[in-house]
Design a protein around this nucleic acid. Structure first.
Lengths: 335, 335
DNA sequence: TATCTTATTGAAACCGATTTCAGAAACCGA
DNA sequence: TCGGTTTCTGAAATCGGTTTCAATAAGATA
């Protein structure tokens, strides 16, 4: 039979009130002696208070919800570890919810989480207009952090990556190596991140007096297959280098170009963006732009918990920088 | 201000008891008319009952705990999706806990989860003797499923992969292709799964009258680097094929052998084991043995929830079969 | 018509903690 | 010695549901 606070009170010959006080460290008005007596009983009986009963009155569950498209995506896996590690350190649990990019699933999950009285919510949203939707279904005072989204003003907490800078740096690297004919495999251009990466590419060209050429652009969809598909095209038009808007497409292009007899990086240099290193594989072949997923998760979680504890009041927008990671897939163009 | 069951009762002009009955479908003794009245009020006020208060009396949280070494490991990522999908379908939440293979972290997590009154627990344990440890810290009647572990009798629920069969099939495939000099990169031999895979290798040789040679064995640690390291050795002793006890080592060996000028599969065939396909990359190069992680997770979760609902009483041990996945890394040996 | 079921509803207890508030004891200054 | 603080403790209310049990009304039976 599970012990309750009343049992402990009876055994220690005090009231439940006192037991509660001792457990919660509100001992300023409890004598050293009774305190020790209670602690001894707790120790001996190995008593653990019922967290649900606690939650009912304290209104905190020490649990946060994490809603994201698919944990199998390496970005989100890494992100989730950043979040979980930080949360665990401060005694919080994380409930994981995969939405598979489906709006209904996302809304349903968030709504269910609300009923569960989680203390906070971290969301990588797939909704058209996440802020208004999410605010509609959550309680006024639940802290929320949106990842991979940028808000105006201080509407909501946001943590996101500087995609523009990523595209810019990748392209600049190729330019610095001496490339002038630089292809660009874009992401789906109805998605904000893809547009920004593309803008980074364009601006890097402009800033270095290289004219933008439409035929150098191949529109992809962030999939490996898009990279594969682009290969034949790029081989035929003869670029000396390619900036792929994500690593998956970069790897696809690399794979197919190699099969077509194109030497990487001698004939064509390739830069990716994301830095998704397959687990355990240390030697990185691909030159790419690092996106600090783990750090972003950690920051999102710390933002959330700070707000939870009232340490900060206003919402923040935090942007993460892109950095170049040198691999073996880029080199000077051949003369 | 959040509505409570009393508010609804007042508005609908009934007692909280009746509201509760209607919400829980215990309507056999509620007239159609009052039922509709209550439902209408719930609908109009958008009332959502407080799940914590419910849990306090029903003793169920509709939440299960998932404890595993590291979600970044593709096995566990896939496993977690199998679990989460199934749990979500039945209205359960999943709390994710990474132990980083540390015993203290695992024990601490399980103990904390117990206090939280989760309904069930799924564990991929890193403990020496998981069953006795886990049973010590959990309540008598919490359903538990162990993954990647095999129990005697019906001590506890287990879901695991037939590692022996995996090693056997991989080796048999090479033998069927005509190979006789078959190297084997083992896993860490203090780990059960590694021993079983190795035994599968040995028995496949024996059953086909190929003598076991000690010099064909390279002991690894399931890491990419171990594969890299083994390459020089295998090139020097001249095997025609290699069975690597996991995909990571297979990929490492492949990488390094290719660098050393060895043609795969013409000069040396390689078989892995695990079938960890990098996300989004469809064309599989490596011939390997599939381990059905997603299915295993799903089954573990269904086992847990069935037990939770009292649908099954006895504990079960469920074994999953290995299957061969043909890639481009194996071929007949050269004459 | 009197009695016995059966259908319908609600008052009150309960789950197991925290928190408010009041009372008792000890201490203190005049 | 006496009123006023301060220290220590516990009774009871509370959080928001579910469940038990009793009460009432309606219908059935004899």
């Amino acid at each position: 039979m599970k012990l309750t606070i009343k049992d402990i009170a009876r055994i220690a010959n005090v009231s439940p009130t006192t037991v509660s006080r001792v457990m919660n460290g509100k001992t300023e008005y409890v004598t050293q002696e009774t305190q020790e007596r209670v602690l001894k009983v707790i120790e001996e009986t190995n008593y653990q208070p019922n967290q649900i009963a606690r939650s009912l009155v304290t209104r905190e569950t020490r649990t946060i919800g994490l809603v994201l498209p698919d944990i199998r995506n390496p970005f989100f896996t890494e992100l989730s570890r950043g979040i979980e590690d930080y949360a665990n350190q401060l005694g919080y649990f994380v409930i994981l919810c995969n939405t598979d990019h489906k709006s209904e699933k996302e809304i349903q999950y968030i709504s269910l989480l609300k009923d569960k009285y989680i203390d906070g919510l971290i969301v990588v949203s797939s909704l058209e207009n996440p802020i208004s939707h999410i605010k509609k279904i959550t309680t006024e005072n639940t802290p929320i952090v949106l990842i991979d989204h940028k808000a105006n003003d201080e509407e909501i907490n946001c943590v996101y990556f500087n995609n523009y800078q990523g595209g810019y740096l990748a392209t600049k690297h190729l330019i610095d190596l001496g490339h002038k004919n630089i292809g660009c495999i874009t992401g789906p251009l109805h998605v904000q991140s893809a547009v920004e990466r593309f803008n980074g590419y364009k601006d890097a060209l402009r800033d270095n007096n290289i004219s933008f050429k439409d035929e150098f652009i191949f529109q992809g969809n962030y999939r490996y297959e898009d990279g594969i598909e682009s290969a034949k095209y790029y081989k035929s038009i003869g670029v000396t280098s390619i900036f792929a808007s994500n690593d998956l497409m970069a790897l696809g292009a690399n794979q197919k170009l190699a099969e077509l007899g194109v030497k990487i990086p001698e004939d064509i240099s390739i830069v990716g963006l994301d830095n998704i290193t397959p687990i355990g594989i240390s030697d990185s072949f691909l030159t790419t732009i690092n996106q600090p997923f783990y750090e972003m998760g950690k920051t999102a979680c710390s933002l959330l918990l700070d707000q939870l504890k009232g340490l900060i009041q206003t919402n923040k927008n935090i942007q993460f920088d892109a950095t170049l990671v040198l691999g073996k897939s880029t080199a000077h163009p051949k003369k």
